[in-house]
Design a protein around this nucleic acid. Structure first.
Lengths: 329, 329
DNA sequence: CTGAAAGCGCTTACAG
DNA sequence: CTGAAAGCGCTTACAG
C-alpha cells in the first residue's frame, strides 16, 4: 500500500507538494500538479485517513447513539442522517444503547477518545450530569438536556393537541392517552401536555397510562394492554397512543375483544413510520413526524457545531407535524 | 484534553510506562501502576484512538455496506452486527449504498484509506473486478463473488424448496414465483432454483417473474403486481414471493380484487422480518431467515479475517431456514 | 511555486 | 522493571 512518500518519490517532488495537490492548494503549478496526479493514479494511492485525522484533529466521523437501530422509527432516521452525512463528507458510527446506561456512557466517551467529531444523541437514559464533563459537540433528538446542548425534535405539543382535537372532533367524550415513561424528561412528554390541555379546554374527561419499558415490540404492547389498559377500556371511547405499533396492538386487542373500531373506539397513533405506511388494514390514523427533515437537521446542525460555523447559530429546532387520517378514527 | 504526556508528567514516569499501564503489560510494578492509574483518573485521561490506530495500524472499525438501513431486513441485521462488534471491541461505520454503483465503489475504498479494518458487504451491484485490487478483509452477505471472498448466507435453495413444497402440499397446481433480479448473481437466486426443481419433481407447472428495482416499498410492489403480475394471476393458485412486503402487497391486491386468500390463492413470503412479525392480519406464511445468526456470523467472521485467526478458518457459512406457517396458505 | 522540519499522540523495538 | 528514541503517514507553519 503506497504512502505519500512513495508518491513523492515517484513524482520527483516533496511530500509537502503531494499533500498540497491532494488538498487542492491553488499555488501549485499545472505541470507538477499533473505529475503528482499521474503518480497517484499509477500507484493507486489513497491517502490514509487515520494519519490525516491525527494531524488535522478531526475524524470526519459522527457518532449516532440510539436505543435500537432496528426500531422502525430510528432505522429511517438513521438513513437520513447517513445520507446527509455522506453529502457533507462525514461518515457515521452507529451505536445501539439498547437502553443500557453503561453503554450510553461508554459511547459518549467516544468524544474524549477522538473517535468521533460530534455525537447525535437519540438515547436518553443518562442524566444531565454525565454531559457536564463534555465540551465537544452533542446534539440530541427529542430531549432538552440543558441550555448548552441543542436539540432537534418535532412539535410534540402540537402533535398532542392535533391528535386530541381530532378525537374530540370525531365525537369522543372520554379519552385515554397511553404514553411512554414521563419520567425520562423527553420532549415527547409534551404530547401528553397537549393532550391534557386540549381535554381540559374541551371539558372532556381523560386519563393517562404510562408504560415503562422501551421494548417497542408488538408483543410487549399487547400484553401491556391486556394487563394494564384493558380494565379501563370500557369507560373509554378514544385513545391517543404514543406510537403506531402501540396503536396497532390496541387495534388488534379491540378486534379480538369485539370492540369495534372506529365505531365504539377511536384510535390514533404517532410516528407514521414505515410500518404504518405499509400497513393497509387498518390505515392507522396518526401524527406524522417528518423523519427525513429531522434526520437532515440533526446531521446538518451537528456538522455546523463541529465546524463551529458562526453563520448558522440556531442549532435547536422544532419541526411541524401533520395529522394523517386513516380508518381507525 | 490531557494527552499521554500529561499523564506521564503528573505520575512522574515516562510515556512508555503510561502506555504499558494502559495496555496491561504485566511487567509493571504495582506501585507505578497505581501512580499511573491515579493520574489517569485525576486528569480524566482517555487515550486518543486516532493516534493509537496510526501506530497500531488498525482502526477497530468495521465498515458495513448495505443498500438501505431502513429496510426491515437490514435494520435488524445491522443491529446484530453492531452488538457483536461491540462485544468484541469493534465499532461499525454504516454505509447505505442506495443501490448506487458509485457509492458502493467509493465505500469499498474505505479499506484503502484505512478508515476501516474490514468490510461486511451486503450490497451487490459492482462486479467481481472491483474487488480484485483489494487484498484486505471483505465478507459478503448472500453473495459469492469469488473463491477468495467468503460469504455468509441462509440456505436459500432449501428455502425455495420448503416454500414450494409447502404450496404443493397445500394443493396448489399452478405456481408462480416472483423474484428479485436474477442477473445480480445473488445467492438469493438459489431460492428460484429450489422453486424450479421442486415444481419439476412434482410435475407442477410454474412461471417466474422478476422485478428489477430494489426499492422494496409497498407501493412499488403493488404497482408492479398491477402492471406485470396481475394478468397471469387467473391461471395461478399459489405464489412464492421473494420477500414479505411483496407477499403482503400481493395479499392486498388479491383482497382488493376479490381473490380469496388462501382459498383461491395461496401466498408464501420470505424473510420473517420485523414487519411480518408485527403484522397480525394476515399472518403471512413465510420462510424465516435467522437474522440474528446471520448478523453474528458476518461479524465474528470478519473479525477472524481481520485478526487473521488461524484457529477458525471456515469463513463461508450457510445457515438453515425455517418454514413459518401463517394464514395465507 | 516548492521544500525541510516539526508535530499530531500514540506504540514498540532496543537498551539498560 | 523502566526510559529514550524512532516511527506510524499525514499537515502546516516557516523559509526561500
Amino acid at each position: 500500500m503506497p504512502s505519500i512518500k512513495d508518491v513523492a518519490k515517484h513524482a520527483g517532488v516533496s511530500i509537502t507538494t503531494v499533500s498540497r495537490v491532494m488538498n487542492n492548494f491553488p499555488s501549485i503549478s499545472e505541470s507538477t500538479r499533473k505529475k503528482v496526479f499521474d503518480s497517484i493514479r499509477v500507484l493507486d494511492y489513497h491517502p490514509d485517513y487515520i494519519a490525516r485525522s491525527l494531524s488535522k484533529k478531526q475524524s470526519l466521523i459522527i457518532g449516532v447513539i440510539i436505543p435500537d437501530c432496528s426500531h422502525v422509527f430510528f432505522s429511517e432516521l438513521i438513513k437520513h442522517i447517513e445520507m446527509t452525512a455522506q453529502n457533507n463528507g462525514y461518515k457515521i458510527l452507529l451505536c445501539n444503547s439498547l437502553d443500557d446506561k453503561e453503554k450510553e456512557l461508554s459511547y459518549i466517551n467516544m468524544l474524549k477518545e477522538k473517535r468521533v467529531d460530534g455525537i447525535i444523541m437519540g438515547s436518553h437514559l443518562i442524566n444531565t450530569e454525565a454531559y457536564k464533563s463534555i465540551d465537544k459537540p452533542v446534539i440530541t433528538f427529542d430531549r432538552c438536556i440543558d441550555d448548552k446542548i441543542p436539540y432537534i425534535g418535532s412539535d410534540n405539543f402540537t402533535g398532542g393537541v392535533l391528535a386530541t382535537k381530532h378525537l374530540i372532533d370525531k365525537g369522543c367524550k372520554r379519552l385515554l392517552h397511553i404514553s411512554g415513561s414521563l419520567k425520562l424528561a423527553s420532549l415527547a412528554n409534551k404530547r401528553s401536555d397537549g393532550f391534557k390541555l386540549t381535554c381540559l379546554e374541551n371539558n372532556v374527561s381523560y386519563q393517562i397510562i404510562e408504560y415503562q419499558h422501551a421494548h417497542l415490540t408488538f408483543e410487549y404492547f399487547y400484553s401491556f394492554i391486556e394487563q394494564e389498559v384493558s380494565r379501563f377500556l370500557e369507560d373509554i371511547d378514544g385513545v391517543f397512543c404514543s406510537n403506531d405499533i402501540l396503536a396497532y396492538a390496541l387495534y388488534v386487542y379491540c378486534l379480538n375483544h369485539n370492540i369495534s373500531v372506529p365505531d365504539k373506539m377511536k384510535i390514533i397513533g404517532y410516528d407514521y413510520s414505515q410500518f404504518t405506511r405499509i400497513l393497509q388494514n387498518p390505515k392507522i390514523t396518526t401524527i406524522a413526524q417528518p423523519i427525513q427533515v429531522l434526520g437532515e437537521l440533526l446531521c446538518t446542525n451537528i456538522i455546523h457545531l463541529i465546524e463551529d460555523d458562526p453563520a448558522t447559530k440556531i442549532y435547536s429546532q422544532i419541526v411541524a407535524v401533520e395529522l394523517i387520517e386513516g380508518t381507525t378514527t
